[in-house]
């Protein structure tokens, strides 16, 4: 879903401001003492500064979990707000260590752009929002509509494909910035707003009259949103991936930020191994971290369920249901390989 300062991007690409981009990102991060995390410039529930200027959100908590795993302190993160257009250059140039910015994992981003994705932290899909007054019940009724969309996103491409496949006419109204798309939709420049469903909920909340807009039932694409790192640094990819799985695994074990200290006394061998209390374990050190890494993650930000509910679920104004993002054991897709 979104972009960066083109000039900064080019400057970075041309001049190679790239000290942080050497192969051993984990060592660099440890040496500088914080994780540089690329996040959205502002998407309610996912990454947004609060009233005091502190970044909050689902993606932000992921960055905090990575920091907790490395340093035992979830606050050792610095944030770089990136737009849909600037995000990739920011990661390529080494300006950020991880891109946790509701970015869809696609094959071309994995290959041609030179990134690696492995852990999907949110399974999303593209949807449509329309004013209730239009009385639209299905996306298939949208022929002839003007559609507001942000440029440079997978959303823009899915939109073109969906309307083409279904033989519907539409009139694209394309803006570079999320704020501009929102303003145009609010002003009635277009009839339909399209983006990932999670983004639709967040955007609707920000409209002056949220109750007068409906989100249509169709989901027209798969949007696995995943944190991205640069290719060619497997160790760093392992750290970033397993932090994500640790969040999921903790939920599966029933370990929360509240009971994690208690759980340390658990006799369950799986939990002991996970929390690093097993004797002579090397699971954390093999990852390049301490054996307490998973404990620190849960202590710092909670488990996947806690992070979800707090930022975008029932504990937040967005009230997004777990749906596809429920644990695999509860009918969802969130599945962590064994910590063993």
């Amino acid at each position: 879903m979104k972009k960066t300062l083109l000039s900064a991007a080019i400057g970075a690409a041309v001049l190679g401001i790239s000290s942080a981009a050497s192969a051993a990102t984990l060592d660099d991060v440890k040496a500088k003492g914080f994780v540089q995390c690329g996040v959205n410039t502002g998407l309610a529930g996912f990454a947004q500064p609060d009233a005091s200027g502190a970044w909050k959100g689902f993606d932000v908590d992921y960055c905090r979990a990575v920091a907790a795993a490395i340093f035992g302190d979830a606050d050792k993160v610095k944030y770089t707000p990136t737009t849909a257009q600037s995000r990739f250059t920011a990661l390529q140039s080494g300006e950020v260590d991880i891109l946790a910015r509701n970015t869809t994992w696609t094959i071309s981003r994995d290959t041609a752009l030179g990134f690696n994705f492995r852990y999907v932290n949110y399974y999303d899909g593209q949807g449509f929002m329309v004013p209730k007054s239009l009385n639209v019940k299905s996306a298939l009724e949208l022929s002839g509509a003007a559609v507001c969309v942000q440029s440079g996103t997978t959303t823009e491409l899915n939109l073109a494909d969906y309307f083409r496949t279904n033989n519907l006419q539409y009139n694209p109204v394309v803006f570079e910035k999320l704020e501009e798309v929102n303003a145009a939709y609010q002003a009635g420049r277009c009839d339909v707003y399209t983006t990932d469903q999670s983004g639709l909920y967040a955007t609707r909340l920000a409209l002056s009259n949220p109750d007068e807009h409906v989100i249509l039932p169709e989901i027209i694409s798969k949007e696995p949103l995943a944190p991205a790192v640069r290719q060619g640094d497997d160790k760093w990819l392992d750290v970033v991936t397993w932090v994500g799985y640790a969040l999921v695994q903790a939920e599966e074990f029933g370990i929360t930020s509240a009971n994690v200290d208690e759980m340390k006394n658990s006799t369950n061998p799986d939990i002991k191994r996970f929390l690093g209390t097993e004797a002579d374990t090397k699971i954390g050190t093999d990852l390049g971290l301490t054996n307490e890494w998973a404990y620190n993650v849960v202590k710092g930000v909670g488990n996947y369920g806690e992070v979800f509910e707090r930022n975008i679920g029932q504990g937040s104004p967005l009230k997004i249901a777990r749906g596809l993002n429920a644990l695999w054991s509860k009918g969802g897709l969130q599945f962590a390989p064994p910590v063993r």
Partner: peptide, 25 residues
């Protein structure tokens, strides 16, 4: 800035969809 598809607009969209920053610029 207002979504008029002139050269810079379609160019930067192409840039972002392909990731070919140096070439597009």
């Amino acid at each position: 800035a207002i979504g008029f598809p002139e050269l810079f607009s379609t160019g930067s969209t192409s840039l972002n969809q392909t990731g070919q920053a140096v070439e597009m610029i």
